[in-house]
Design a protein around this nucleic acid. Structure first.
Lengths: 351, 351
DNA sequence: TTGAAAGCGATACCAA
DNA sequence: TTGGTATCGCTTTCAA
């Protein structure tokens, strides 16, 4: 009796129809009354139209358009215990390498009636933990991560919550639940092997301070070491990486005694900077200097001189992640809880 | 009597304490019972702790940690008619120019207990309209847009919904509600004036096919026309823009007869590509060729040769947008519903 | 195929 | 300062 809105509508039912179209003012009950059916039927007409008689369906749909009814998913979520919300945690929205994964992840989920709540972790596990805590209050039906590193508390929370989780962009033998990605250790080693096989013996490299890049770095340098190659020419940069870091990086490496050979970068963005600086210093590419990036970013599609880079399927990661997550959410059997999408080393030179 | 969960808890209250910690299994009522207080008090202890006696507060907090209670914001939202959710629509998450705005927008809102639901419009008004329709079911407390162009149906929906709206990155005399941005017409004109004043008389330009870029283009070319300058050397590119488009663009323009002067680009990304191509073709910059970008992106912070670009405060747009939106949501008076953050033309040359 | 009624888990009002 | 109770708007169960 106390809520104003209801007081109004109980005063008399006349005023309700014409002007009072403010969002939320029209409820399922209003539609049901207007259509002359029960609320259950309206709910069905919206969610399982095939279970409603055609004539009834039409009456309901008329009432819906007439009233401008917009369903309240909050109430629906509370009643059904399904929020139709999935939380996605990414290191940074400023870093375009993640964009395509997120886009395809969102798109696939949207097609199944889910929406994505994005959380930015700034590459910090503590921030991730705090975000997870906050987001659990929204009762997401599933959770998506870029990366596999989480705080102990975060892991515990997730386990306790018993929500489907998919980790991506990496590989591990101990996933929280589902995982879709590839091995960064393998990338590091394979990159080194690839260049060694080309006969290159002089190396320098530029690495961002994020955990996956560091994993590649470690395995890259180790592989070189195993071949007795000097690995002292290394330059560290902040994340997210930018064009300028590449130019600056090469300058530093040259000043430190690097004469040519190969420069391996932890991102294509850096590699483009290196490329630009190398050009303006008169290097012949790739004869004097081979430049290696990572990510096969769209903006590298037009690269002359050639850029060697590591390609993996960002779209597929997003889409696969969504698909397995949906399966788990729907209680279906997940055929492959661990999906390694792999990677390849390619040379870009599209002119 | 029918719901399984309740059946269990009514069988006997013993089992509830130890293992049954799955998310959502512990409710406010459980906490209240354990603490020996009413549900109202627990709710207060969480939301307005200062209105609860210290001793009571302690009891409640103990009960919360003991049970591992995680509040259910869905239920809270339904009861309080506040979702604490804000919808944000951006053209593309792959385009880093928007990232900083979104980041600061989200951050500011998060500090006030709001979360952001991101929607990607792909630069298409129809998609935006459909997203808006979907998202209104979640009853967001506010809506954020990049841009001011919406379909008629979308505008109507928004007006009817009567939700606070903030549009950004642009300026108009007829905003939906709040607006924080700057005039792209002014950018176009000012850029032309700036270059003319430097004595440049030969121009070429590269433009992305997005509405704001087109607005700048129109005013840029008009201004040149007014000075009797040839404006035929124009190259169009898809959005989101990339490095390669700049290189390709300059090649085309040179092939079309461009000899030097100034190349104006609708983004810094394109401008970097132009810069790279110009360098490799032996242009002296800026003597032979001035390159003008837009956005003052972080990755242009290290640019030698210099890049002229248009700077505006992306962070401030995000933060201001959040602040005015919050004010409106809280029913406070909004001092300035229209905020023009302005812009400036700068030369980047940080080495 | 349809509908009545009992929740879902919080908040808000009012009274104590 | 505290608590009882009536909602919030929908889905689910069960019976008709």
């Amino acid at each position: 009796m106390s809520r104003k809105r209801k007081d109004l509508s109980k005063d008399g039912d006349t005023a309700n129809r014409s002007e009072d179209k403010q969002i939320g003012s029209v409820t399922l009950t209003d539609v049901a009354r207007l259509a002359g059916v029960g609320t259950t039927t309206v709910s069905r007409a919206i969610n399982q139209p095939d279970q409603v008689a055609p004539k009834t369906l039409e009456k309901v749909n008329q009432a819906i358009t007439l009233t401008g009814y917009v369903p309240n998913l909050i109430a629906g979520a509370l009643a059904s215990r399904k929020s139709h919300l999935v939380a996605a945690f990414i290191p940074s929205i400023a870093n375009t390498v993640y964009a395509e994964t997120i886009r395809y992840f969102s798109r696939t989920l949207r097609n199944s009636g889910y929406q994505v709540l994005l959380g930015e972790t700034d590459y910090q596990e503590e921030q991730e933990e705090s975000l997870v805590r906050t987001i659990l209050s929204r009762r997401p039906d599933g959770i998506f991560f870029i990366g596999i590193n989480h705080t102990q508390a975060c892991r515990r929370q997730l386990l306790v919550a018993n929500i489907p989780v998919v980790e991506t962009w990496d590989m591990t033998t101990t996933p929280l639940d589902l995982i879709v990605g590839f091995s960064h250790e393998a990338v590091g080693k394979t990159t080194a092997d690839f260049l060694l096989q080309k006969g290159i013996r002089e190396f320098a490299s530029i690495w961002a301070l994020d955990s996956r890049a560091q994993l590649r770095r470690k395995n890259f340098l180790e592989t070189l070491n195993n071949h007795g190659i000097d690995t002292s020419l290394v330059f560290d940069v902040e994340t997210p990486t930018n064009f300028g870091q590449g130019r600056e990086g090469l300058k530093h490496l040259l000043a430190a005694g690097f004469k040519g050979g190969a420069v391996v970068c932890s991102s294509d963005t850096i590699a483009h900077g290196v490329l630009a600086e190398a050009l303006s210093q008169g290097f012949r590419i790739p004869e004097d200097l081979a430049v290696v990036g990572f990510g096969d970013q769209s903006f590298s599609a037009f690269t002359n001189p050639p850029l060697t880079t590591v390609r993996f399927d960002r779209k597929r990661i997003g889409q696969c992640a969504a698909e397995v997550l949906l399966a788990r959410i729907n209680g279906e059997k997940v055929p492959e809880p661990v999906i390694d999408v792999g990677f390849e080393i390619i040379e870009r030179m599209t002119t």
